[in-house]
Design a protein around this nucleic acid. Structure first.
Length: 572
RNA sequence: CGGGGCGUAGCGCAGCCUGGUAGCGCACUACACUGGGGGUGUAGUGGUCGCAGGUUCAAAUCCUGCCGUCCCGACCA
């Protein structure tokens, strides 16, 4: 591509509302432009990267045997009512009416449509297993779109859906997709991990997420130092070792004026938070009547909302009881609650249950108990894992300790089982001529998000550093004073044509009067991996300058060797 | 959804408190110089000051409402 025929709209300053580095660089490099909150246009330069990612995904999906199709963005409400998700989905689902006032939604995902297709097209177990995918626009009316293309309302996703006549077959395809995803992310050249995940609102049983590692990632992911255990923190558990029970000291009520938080309590009594128990009261409004439930955690641990929701079978958001509700139920303020003689259902975290002689609230404003023992003071306990693991916990498989890193979720695979096929009556006849619900799997990859994640992981002060496989251009030719030297011009032209002939994606900075400094700054911002600078000075010795985007020094290459050199290092 | 910030030229910002000719930098156009890392000069182009009301002789500036946009949001018991 010739720069003179292309649109390169770089900026020195980044827009004020861009917070994370990938968003800033994508705007500065002219890859994307915002249309409205959570809605972006892909400029030609950005689209090139987008397409490269898309191509890798498509090639590997095809290789896996999945069949590409395309379903509509706008979907009828009927299908969603059949699956039960019309009422289950919150405001994330953008609903709209057509001119006949019929209900539709913009598809955030396509389980309903694909299940509808398959139930009418496939009727025999002999046609299974089958796997269908599309690469297409999705819409989710995010509560808060942010981070540029990382969390938008409209985004592009590859979604695949597999159908099976039995669980083993689903297992096989799931494994195949796991492999395929690994190949896809290997090919993008990104540093990623697959982790165990929760199935969330899509439902189903087993699930893995694929995360690109980056400090700015929205998710915390947990690894064992010694085994291959890896999980999202929402899902991660740890091995709780029963501590030797200390002999119970005498329980004492102590006055704790103006102590409302664990922090204040620790300071007041000069002890560490792991010797305290905090008691949270949640209101489970979701389960019909307004019921309060108490949760006991070690003072230094954090509640894992998801684990509690799974235990209590709550679908919606978990919310903490208000001060009034607590006052009404317990006659004290939130800062003084404890597990003793609590007139509420209580769930004790398994780590909290190992603490003895702890300090906790006395359910009386201004008072706490010390030397509390679960066995003696709290009666029968309901114990569950309801906290987030922390760095240094034991891996649940007993091998190694847990370590926590940040990740950007770019892929997610699920075993759905028969959730949708049952709801939508998608059946086949088995070997015995009996009707059976198909088992399903679904598999997503965020195409647009991968582009942003790649930048989060690969950039420096001067701009983006694209991995070879997804760079908008593999190579760039930068001439020096081309308008003054016919020789430089001719060499650049020749080289450009030779590289294009050799199948190397090349950008030729052919604006005759462009200044060198400006061109170099642009080219670094855009992140082209391989740079060739050609000037009269070097040409006199038959030499041109090569530099990789990550390198800090030029390498002199003989003019007649450059095409082979580039072909060699830029090969796919 | 709750809390906060911000809307002035394509982008980044000042002006607003204390009402009176709408400014600066980048970008853009033309010309000249310069020519191996965002160069210099001269002359230009470009703005319903988010929208709607109100106060006033006079509103970017003061008041009210709306819209847009960005950031933060159990972690405290």
């Amino acid at each position: 591509m010739r720069a003179s025929k292309y649109l390169i709209t770089t900026k020195k300053e980044s827009p004020a509302d861009a917070e994370i580095i990938s968003h800033q660089l994508m705007l500065r490099a002219g890859m994307i432009r915002k249309v409205a909150s959570g809605l972006y246009s892909w400029m030609p330069l950005g689209l090139r990267v987008f397409r490269k990612v898309e191509t890798i995904v498509r090639e590997e999906m095809d290789r896996s045997g999945a069949l590409e199709l395309m379903m509509p963005v706008v979907q009828p409400a009927d299908l969603w009512e059949e699956s039960g998700r019309w009422s289950q989905f919150g405001p994330e689902l953008l609903r709209l009416n057509d001119r006949h006032d019929r209900d539709f939604c913009l598809g955030p995902t396509h389980e309903e449509v694909i299940t509808d297709i398959i139930r009418s097209e496939i009727s025999s177990y002999k046609q299974l297993p089958a796997n269908f995918y599309q690469i297409q626009t999705k819409f989710r009316d995010e509560r808060r779109p942010r981070f540029g293309v990382m969390r938008t309302r409209e985004f592009c996703m590859k979604d695949a859906y597999s159908f099976h006549s039995n669980a083993e077959s689903l297992q096989e395809t799931y494994q195949l997709m796991y492999q395929t995803y690994s190949t896809i992310f290997d090919r993008t050249g990104l540093d990623y991990r697959a982790v165990l995940a929760d199935t969330g609102s899509i439902g189903g049983s087993l699930s893995h997420e694929f995360h690109v590692l980056a400090d700015s990632g929205e998710d915390a992911i947990v690894f064992s130092t010694e085994s291959d255990y890896a999980a999202n923190i929402e899902k991660a558990s740890s091995l709780v070792l029963d501590k030797k029970k200390e002999a119970a000291d005498v329980k004492t009520e102590i006055t704790t004026p103006d102590v409302h938080t664990i922090g204040e309590l620790c300071k007041f009594l000069s002890l560490t938070a792991d010797k305290t128990i905090k008691t949270l009261i949640i209101s489970t409004e979701d389960s019909g009547k307004d019921k309060l439930v108490a949760l006991a955690l070690r003072g230094d641990h954090q509640l894992n909302e998801l684990k509690v929701k799974n235990i209590l079978g709550i679908n919606g958001d978990l919310c903490l009881a208000s001060e009034e509700e607590i006052k009404k139920a317990l006659n004290c303020h939130p800062g003084s609650i404890g597990p003793i003689d609590l007139n509420l259902p209580l769930i004790v975290d398994s780590s909290a249950a190992c603490v003895s002689n702890f300090v906790c609230g006395a359910n009386k404003d201004g008072y706490h108990f010390k030397n509390v023992s679960w066995d003696r003071d709290c009666g029968e306990l309901s114990i569950s894992d309801i906290r987030n693991v922390v760095s240094g916990d034991f891996s649940p498989d007993g091998k190694g300790k847990l370590e926590i890193k940040r990740g950007i979720e770019v892929g997610h695979i699920f075993q759905l089982g028969t959730k949708y096929s049952e709801a939508m009556k998608a059946t086949v006849l088995d070997e015995n001529g009996k009707e059976q619900f198909m088992s399903m799997g679904c598999y997503g990859i965020g195409v647009s998000r991968i582009v942003a994640a790649a930048i989060e992981q690969n950039h420096d002060d001067n701009g983006i550093i694209w991995p070879e496989a997804i760079a908008p251009f593999q190579t760039v030719i930068v001439p020096i004073n081309m308008h003054k030297s016919e020789h430089v011009r001719a060499v650049c032209e020749n080289l450009y044509l030779s590289l294009m002939d050799a199948g190397v994606d090349t950008l030729f900075m052919d604006e005759p009067k462009a200044r060198l400094g400006v061109m170099l700054a642009d080219v670094e911002l855009i992140g082209v991996p391989h740079r060739i600078v050609i000037g009269e000075r070097g040409l006199q010795d038959g030499i041109i300058e090569y530099r990789h985007r990550r390198a800090s020094e030029n390498v002199d290459i003989k003019l007649n060797e450059i095409v082979d050199f580039i072909k060699n290092i830029a090969k796919r």
